[in-house]
Amino acid sequence: MSLTLRVLAPDQNVFDGSADEVILPSTTGQLGILTGHISMLTAIDVGVLRVRANGSWNSIALMGGFAEVDSDEVTVLVNKAELGSSIDANAAEADFQKATSAVAGMEGQPASAEKVKAQQQLNEARARMQASKSAD
């Protein structure tokens, strides 16, 4: 028996298939989902969803949203998502370094919209970089 996983973004169906195991980046930490999991709804943080299917692991960078688990079906609704295998690892690493520098340059400054935006860009760049490396 396996799980049915659907990862949906506003502009695309990112993943729709069977999975043996799913690890979700929830706002309260990593959640492992196996067949027979209790029904639940959880908020998804910016991070990497990992899915094991046919003995191999794949990664999907998620940019926040919600996940529902019900009767061995996992539905993930997110603001944006990218398959790790479709992310250019070198570009993702460069984006991460750029975002890290931007956040470091704002250290010690009072809270502002620019600082929050820079931190969000850093979180997204980190997720993309991690997903691209997991796809190797």
Rank of each mutant, 00 (worst) to 15 (best):
Q97C: 07
A111Y: 09
T4S: 13
V116C: 05
K115E: 09
E114R: 06
E124Q: 15
Q12V: 08
E107V: 12
E107W: 07
N54L: 09
A81R: 00
A89D: 14
Q30A: 12
D70G: 04
S134Q: 11
I44Y: 00
Q121M: 14
E68T: 09
A118R: 00
V7A: 12
G47F: 01
S112Y: 10
Q130Y: 03
D95S: 07
A102Q: 10
G108Y: 06
A127K: 05
A92E: 07
T100Q: 13
S132L: 06
S134F: 01
N79F: 04
A92F: 09
Q109L: 15
D20E: 15
I33W: 04
S101W: 01
V22I: 15
M129P: 02
Q130T: 02
L41W: 05
E124Y: 10
D45A: 13
A94I: 06
P110N: 05
L31W: 03
A91G: 13
L24D: 00
A91D: 14
I44M: 02
A43R: 03
A118T: 01
D20T: 11
V51N: 08
L8E: 05
S101T: 10
I87W: 10
N58S: 14
I33H: 05
D20Y: 08
A81F: 04
D136G: 10
V14D: 11
S18T: 12
T100H: 09
Q12P: 01
A111G: 00
R126Q: 11
E68N: 02
L41H: 05
I38Y: 12
S56E: 15
S85E: 10
N123E: 15
Q130K: 06
A43Y: 00
G108T: 03
R128S: 06
A94K: 15
F15K: 11
G55F: 03
L24T: 02
T28D: 15
A111R: 11
D72E: 08
S2N: 13
S101L: 11
A99N: 02
D136W: 01
A135D: 08
V14N: 09
T42R: 03
S59N: 12
G29N: 04
G17D: 12
R126M: 12
T35S: 05
G29C: 04
V22Y: 04
A92M: 10
S86P: 02
N79C: 03
F66I: 07
L5W: 01
K133W: 07
M40T: 15
Q130P: 00
E21T: 12
P10E: 06
E107Y: 11
G65M: 10
E21Q: 12
S85T: 10
V48T: 11
Q97K: 14
L24C: 04
L24I: 08
V116E: 12
V48Q: 03
D16C: 09
R6W: 00
D45M: 07
F66R: 03
K133V: 10
A127S: 08
E124T: 12
L5V: 08
A81K: 00
N58M: 14
A99P: 02
V22F: 05
E68Q: 10
G65N: 08
V78G: 02
I33F: 09
I44L: 08
V46R: 07
K133N: 05
E82F: 14
S18E: 14
